[in-house]
Structure formats: structure tokens, C-alpha cells
């Protein structure tokens, strides 16, 4: 996974704050993309992938908390670190309720902000690994013929080859043939390995 680019979005209307965060995160090998407004970010955010964003609440038009609401509505996989005003507990509470990953009070403690970003990125990474597996699974499932698909579904239900043959009204030999094809196409050594793959996709 080290090959994966570590990237964080910084949404803050203060250029100095954005610049300082970019510099700080670069020391941890994290790239940043800076946005001065919520709208600017919303238009170019990669909604389908997991991502991490440091979001200031005080923004010119659309506020940080409003953007947060939109983000979580669109995708459960974004990790948002909310920056609130000092002592602004109500906003912090709202942010956490909406589903923010964490919040920091501004002016923040740079050390803990960095730790928080690392944590958020780790989560995003896990999310995207999971994503990749799911994509592969979908891809493989698509290569099965119609009959192989029926066999695959029954295999996942835990049926033995004889049962499958009886249910699909085919000979046991034919059923065994399809079963072998399914395992080959999924690159699975056994039925239990196939089940694991299916289960991993479903959680």
C-alpha cells in the first residue's frame, strides 16, 4: 500500500492556514489539495472514493458544518476533521453527530492535528483496500455464465454438489464441472475460500 498516494483536502478561507498545513503535512509525506471555499471543494471532491478532509467551520458562503452535512449525505467513506472556533462546543457536538471523524479547536495543537490526520488516512486506506477487493469480486462475478451463476449462488447457500444437481435438474457430473469453473474464475482453492471472499464484500 505504500505505493498509494497519501492526500488530504484542506478547506479554509485563510491562505496562511492552508499554506502552514500544507507544509506541516508534507513533512509527514502527505500531499494536500487546498480549497478556499466549501463550494470550490464540493465541485471537485472525489465522491466515489474514500478521502480525508480538514474543514474549517467558518467559511465565506456555505459553512463548514453545512458542507459536512452534504459530504456525509453523499458518502459514508469520507473522514472529515472539523476545525471549530475556540470553545464552540455546540458546533463541535453537531459535527460529531453529523458524522465527522474528529474535531479540533482553532487555534489547534499542531501535533495532535497531525496525529488525527494520520488516523483518518489509515481509515481511508482500509476503506479503499476494501473497495478494491469489492471491485475485483464484482469483476469476477461478471465473468460467470448464467448456469455458473446459479451454481455460484447455491454454493454460497452452502449446498453440496448433489443438492445443486437436484435443484438445477442437472447431472452430478455437470454440477461438478460448473463448480470447478467457478472456483477457477474466482481464483479460489476451496469453497470456504470462496465464501470468505463473498463475506468480505458484504460487510
Amino acid at each position: 500500500m505504500s505505493a498509494m498516494k497519501r492526500r488530504v483536502f484542506v478547506v479554509d478561507d485563510e491562505p496562511e492556514v492552508r499554506d502552514a498545513l500544507t507544509l506541516l503535512l508534507s513533512t509527514a509525506g502527505i500531499d494536500t489539495e487546498e480549497y478556499a471555499s466549501a463550494e470550490g471543494f464540493w465541485e471537485s471532491a472525489p465522491h466515489d472514493d474514500p478521502y480525508c478532509v480538514i474543514l474549517d467551520n467558518r467559511l465565506p458562503a456555505l459553512s463548514g458544518i453545512e458542507l459536512l452535512a452534504r459530504i456525509v449525505e453523499r458518502s459514508q467513506r469520507a473522514s472529515v476533521i472539523m476545525m471549530t472556533g475556540h470553545g464552540d462546543i455546540p458546533t463541535a457536538v453537531r459535527a460529531m453527530k453529523l458524522g465527522a471523524f474528529h474535531f479540533v479547536e482553532k487555534p489547534f495543537d499542531a501535533e495532535s492535528l497531525l496525529a488525527m490526520v494520520e488516523e483518518a488516512l489509515a481509515r481511508a486506506e482500509r476503506e479503499s483496500e476494501h473497495n478494491a477487493e469489492a471491485a475485483l469480486f464484482r469483476e469476477r462475478r461478471a465473468t460467470l455464465t448464467e448456469r455458473e451463476g446459479e451454481v455460484f449462488d447455491l454454493l454460497l447457500e452452502g449446498c453440496a454438489t448433489k443438492t445443486i444437481a437436484a435443484r438445477l435438474d442437472i447431472t452430478v457430473r455437470t454440477a461438478e464441472h460448473h463448480r470447478g469453473a467457478v472456483l477457477r474464475k474466482f481464483d479460489a482453492k476451496s469453497i470456504s475460500a470462496l465464501m470468505r471472499l463473498a463475506l468480505a464484500r458484504n460487510d
Binding site: 496562511e16 513533512t27 472556533g85 489547534f108
Partner: peptide
């Protein structure tokens, strides 16, 4: 407090960034 927290936040980030750069000899 909002006004003054902006420069304080960026100072904190710049200074920590500088320290990390020096520590790692980057």
C-alpha cells in the same frame, strides 16, 4: 478570538513543520 486564532493556528503548524523538517534532516 476568531481573528487571533488564525495566525496562532498557522504559527503552530509552521513551527511544528519546521521542527519535523530539521529533526528528519529533510
Amino acid at each position: 478570538s476568531h481573528e487571533i486564532s488564525q495566525p496562532l493556528a498557522s504559527i503552530a503548524a509552521y513551527v511544528l513543520g519546521a521542527r519535523r523538517l530539521l529533526e528528519s534532516g529533510q
